[in-house]
Amino acid sequence: MGNDGDSVLQTFRDALIGLPLSHLWRGYGSAIFLEFGRLTPRTRRSGEAGNPTGELGLMIQWSWRIEDTVSILCGSWSQEHLWEPTFDLLRNKAVVELSVVGRLPEIVVALKESVYVSSFMTAEGDPQWSLFDRRGGTLRTLSVEEGRLKLDVDRSPLS
Rank of each mutant, 00 (worst) to 15 (best):
E55M: 09
I66N: 06
P105M: 01
G75N: 03
T11G: 12
W64N: 04
M59P: 00
G5Q: 11
D14S: 10
K93N: 07
I32L: 15
S46P: 13
L111M: 04
V96P: 07
Y116H: 13
M121Q: 13
E124D: 14
G37L: 03
H23W: 12
I60D: 11
S118F: 02
F36L: 14
D152V: 04
R148A: 12
G54D: 03
H23I: 00
M59G: 06
V95Q: 07
I72H: 04
R65D: 14
P20Q: 03
W83P: 05
S30M: 05
F132A: 01
R155Y: 01
R134T: 01
G29D: 13
S30L: 01
I17G: 07
W62C: 03
V144F: 09
G57T: 00
V8F: 10
M1R: 11
S99V: 01
E145D: 12
G137F: 11
L151G: 09
R42Y: 02
W64M: 06
T122Q: 15
L21T: 06
P157T: 03
A123I: 06
L73Q: 11
P41E: 09
H81Q: 12
A94V: 02
I66R: 04
G137M: 08
A49Q: 14
Y28N: 13
F12E: 04
W129K: 05
P157V: 01
G136I: 04
D152M: 05
P85Q: 05
L151C: 09
D154V: 01
E80L: 09
D154W: 08
L142T: 07
L58C: 04
S130G: 05
L73D: 09
L56R: 06
G47E: 09
Q79H: 14
R45S: 12
S159Q: 11
S99L: 11
L142H: 13
F132Q: 06
S63G: 15
S143A: 13
R45H: 09
G102P: 07
G37D: 02
F12T: 06
D4R: 13
A15N: 13
P20I: 01
L9M: 14
E106W: 08
G29A: 10
N92A: 02
T141S: 13
H23G: 01
G54F: 05
S119M: 03
E84L: 12
R148Q: 15
M59F: 05
S46V: 05
V8R: 14
D4L: 08
Q61F: 08
M59S: 12
E124S: 07
L142S: 09
H81Y: 14
E84S: 09
V144S: 07
S76L: 08
R42W: 02
S143H: 15
L139G: 00
L139P: 02
G18D: 02
K93I: 00
S78C: 06
V109R: 08
L16P: 08
V108S: 15
W25E: 14
G137N: 10
P157Y: 02
E80W: 13
G18Y: 05
W129G: 03
R103D: 15
L16G: 04
A15T: 02
S71L: 00
Q61K: 05
S63K: 06
T43G: 05
S130I: 04
L9P: 13
W77Q: 11
L98W: 10
V100A: 00
R45T: 10
P41N: 01
W62P: 00
D154P: 03
I72C: 15
F33T: 03
M1K: 08
T11F: 10
